[in-house]
């Protein structure tokens, strides 16, 4: 490596460090919290002190440690069957994060693909896809999902499909608009003039150029997807026992508010901090990528 190149690399590294130290404290905290959540999502099974469904009937409903009646066997307390709250929280966070990530990404891919198709084909295809977008937007999807899950039963595939169908229409609408305007810009026209095939132009040139607003939409969509999952699980329809998610834990803990408030409050606070962190990150990202959208 020549000297010039290495100094460029170093300069860049310092620039990254400087930029990190310029981060507002709230954004730093939010990013840190989300990093921890992602680690839990990947390593939950390794971190848990007990199996999340391990029953310990001797130590039922023990409170977290500073409270009276707590035990160091379960420093964060146990639920009504003596299952370790911390282990359950880890696994529940893993489930909720995985589902929200999967739901957000599937919805984004579906919406972005349909947005491209609508913009490219135009005519009947455009009408049809935008009609579907309007239909999806006019449907009370949460309520439809509630009925579908109740009637179609406890199936993971159906639940993930329902999550994927939540919010795709926004991506489709945004993508279509962005593609229509990007297509007419100089660079796209130039590549088309050089004989680039449409697929090549869309994937290699237009998609990277419009990825900013789409990424912002992704961060906006993630908190609502996690709320969608936890709400359904809270009502007992999404993730059901023996599996657990943050919403399912909260729904279970709701029955013990009087004598074990922490069973509901701890998973509830976790959901709250996840949505809060993602909202803060999304706002920040929006300000960075597209100052005109800042509100």
């Amino acid at each position: 490596m020549t000297e010039a190149a290495s100094s460029v690399v170093q300069g860049r590294r310092f620039a990254v460090l400087r930029r990190l130290s310029d981060l507002p404290a709230a954004v730093g905290l939010a990013a840190g919290f989300m990093a921890v959540m992602l680690l839990i999502m990947i390593f939950a099974k390794l971190l848990q002190p007990y199996a999340f469904d391990h029953i310990d009937l001797v130590n039922r409903l023990t409170p977290p440690v500073p409270l009276s009646g707590s035990t160091w066997l379960h420093p964060t307390g146990t639920d009504t069957l003596g299952r370790d709250l911390f282990s359950r929280l880890l696994v529940a966070t893993q489930t909720s994060m995985l589902l929200a990530l999967l739901g957000t990404c599937l919805g984004a891919v579906l919406g972005i693909a349909l947005g491209f198709v609508a913009a490219h084909k135009g005519g009947l295809w455009d009408e049809l896809i935008m009609g579907l977008v309007d239909f999806q937007a006019a449907m009370p999807w949460f309520i439809v999902a509630l009925a579908l899950l109740a009637f179609l039963g406890n199936s993971m595939v159906i639940f993930i499909a329902i999550m994927a169908l939540y919010g795709w229409e926004t991506y489709a609408r945004i993508t279509r608009g962005l593609v229509l305007s990007a297509r007419e810009q100089g660079y796209a026209l130039a590549i088309r003039g050089l004989g680039g095939r449409p697929r090549w132009i869309y994937l290699r040139h237009i998609l990277p150029n419009i990825s900013g607003p789409l990424l912002v939409q992704l961060t906006v969509n993630f908190p609502s997807t996690i709320l969608f999952e936890t709400s359904l699980s809270f009502l007992g329809l999404g993730i059901r026992p023996p599996m657990t998610s943050l919403g399912q834990m909260l729904g279970e803990g709701r029955d013990y508010l009087i004598n074990a408030w922490w069973l509901a409050v701890v998973p509830g606070m976790t959901i709250f901090f996840i949505t809060l962190s993602m909202s803060i990150l999304g706002d920040w990202l929006r300000g960075k990528l597209d100052p005109s959208l800042e509100d």
């Binding site: 709320l227 508010l257 509901a264 409050v265 509830g268 606070m269 709250f272 949505t275 909202s279 706002d283």
Partner: peptide, 14 residues
């Protein structure tokens, strides 16, 4: 930001 990050089922329970 706090207001719309708060899941309504959890707010109700609180």
């Amino acid at each position: 930001v706090f207001g719309f990050s708060m899941p309504n089922f959890f707010l109700g329970i609180l």
